[in-house]
């Protein structure tokens, strides 16, 4: 699709009217949330390029949503809920592929932290997408059970059971890789 400059300006004007926030507010919100959302998508899908695409789609759907938010936390949780749904929809597609173990975008960090990261990557890749999702939201993002339940679309009671099962599976996988060797 090619647009002239005038059409582009018109598109931006139309977007201002269609989106739930203006560009300035969006920039502030994006700076706060983009990295955590990208990391979440990368962990749940196990595919960084897919996470890039889903990140764009997440913010597009967020901007188009006609929702009102009681607080910034509510707004942030809504964004993660969109990301969760997009990841879930991806895995429902027949051609969807599971994560590639060891697909890591790395910096030159400490060797031990890097080893933990690789082990977590590989262990997470062996979990179901929903298990990855709830584990990440609970332990990496620090959400409450109620918040996670609302985000993934289950009751808080079911969430506790799901979380417990997922935790046991991940713990078993990580223990096999000696990540969870000792107590704090």
């Amino acid at each position: 699709m090619t647009l002239t400059d005038i059409e582009c300006i018109g598109a931006l004007d139309a977007a201002e009217r269609t989106f739930q926030m203006d560009e300035e507010a969006f920039r502030g919100f994006y700076e706060l949330t983009a990295r955590p959302v990208w990391v979440y998508l990368a962990r749940v899908t196990g595919d960084h390029r897919l996470a890039d695409d889903l990140l764009q789609e997440t913010y597009y759907r967020f901007l188009r949503a006609r929702a009102t938010f009681a607080s910034e936390d509510h707004r942030r949780h809504y964004l993660f809920r969109i990301a969760t749904n997009l990841a879930r929809d991806h895995f429902r597609q027949p051609h969807a592929t599971e994560a590639i173990a060891g697909d890591v975008r790395s910096d030159a960090g400490a060797a031990e932290r890097e080893a933990v990261r690789i082990d977590v990557t590989r262990a997470m890749a062996r979990l179901k997408p929903r298990e990855r999702s709830i584990l990440w939201l609970a332990y990496a993002q620090g959400w409450t059970h109620e918040e996670i339940a609302a985000s993934v679309g289950v009751t808080p009671a079911s969430l506790k059971t799901l979380l417990y099962r997922a935790r046991r599976r991940l713990a078993t996988l990580l223990q096999a890789r000696r990540v969870m060797g000792g107590r704090p």
């Binding site: 994006y30 983009a34 990496a140 990580l174 704090p184």
Partner: peptide
């Protein structure tokens, strides 16, 4: 605690290494 610590370490590392597009580009 062990599991949360491992996941948080992983998250912090990934946040450091994450490259997201600029807000203006996404907008």
């Amino acid at each position: 605690v062990s599991l949360a610590t491992a996941l948080r370490t992983d998250r912090d590392e990934m946040l450091r290494a994450a490259h997201v597009p600029a807000a203006g580009q996404v907008w």
